[in-house]
């Protein structure tokens, strides 16, 4: 690789620090305190800038076997789960907690390769209902009902 991983990360961080600093300098001022709300953010932005620069010149740690690296074939699965989760969140308030959770639990487990369909269906039906009852009736915390009447 032409550039080390540390260098790439460092450049990304420097960009973040610069954006953060620009936003910090734009904070409106407030006249009645000796130290305004922008002091700490500006300080933090500068610190991040310095630390990122230090990282840039730090050698990468010896590349041992990276435990967290996802094998290429698993990447679509992770992305798939993320998509399922986004759909779940998007539909939660529209269709309601019970229905979306049932669908999410069943489909996501299926997608991950769970093949005991009866168990899966049972869990997907029972768990959302139990949670819903626990929250709505016992804890008096209303979860979205959506299109269901309860």
């Amino acid at each position: 690789m032409f550039r080390t991983k540390n260098k790439k990360v460092s450049i990304a961080l420097i960009l973040i620090a610069i954006v953060y600093l620009i936003l910090s300098f734009q904070l409106p001022s407030y006249a009645y305190v000796p130290v305004d709300s922008d002091l700490v953010p500006i300080g933090l932005g500068v610190i991040l800038l310095l630390l990122s620069a230090m990282l840039f010149f730090t050698k990468d740690q010896e590349q041992k076997e990276n435990e967290e690296h996802i094998p290429k074939k698993d990447l679509p699965i992770v992305l798939g789960v993320i998509c399922f989760t986004i759909l779940y969140i998007a539909l939660l308030e529209i269709i309601g907690f019970i229905m979306t959770t049932m669908l999410f639990l069943f489909l996501c487990s299926l997608f991950l390769g769970y093949r005991k369909h009866v168990v899966n269906a049972a869990v997907s039906i029972v768990i959302p209902i139990l949670i819903y009852l626990l929250f709505n009736d016992f804890l008096q915390v209303s979860l979205p009902t959506g299109i269901l009447p309860f």
Binding site: T101, C108, S109, L112, G113, I127
Partner: peptide, 28 residues
């Protein structure tokens, strides 16, 4: 089983956050 546990953990995290903030923004 892991495949089921993964879905369950996601659901629990989502409920946990939703029950505090009641906003889908926080879920994203």
């Amino acid at each position: 089983p892991r495949q089921l546990l993964i879905s369950l953990i996601i659901v629990f995290c989502i409920i946990g956050v939703y029950a505090v903030s009641f906003s889908t923004f926080d879920l994203y």
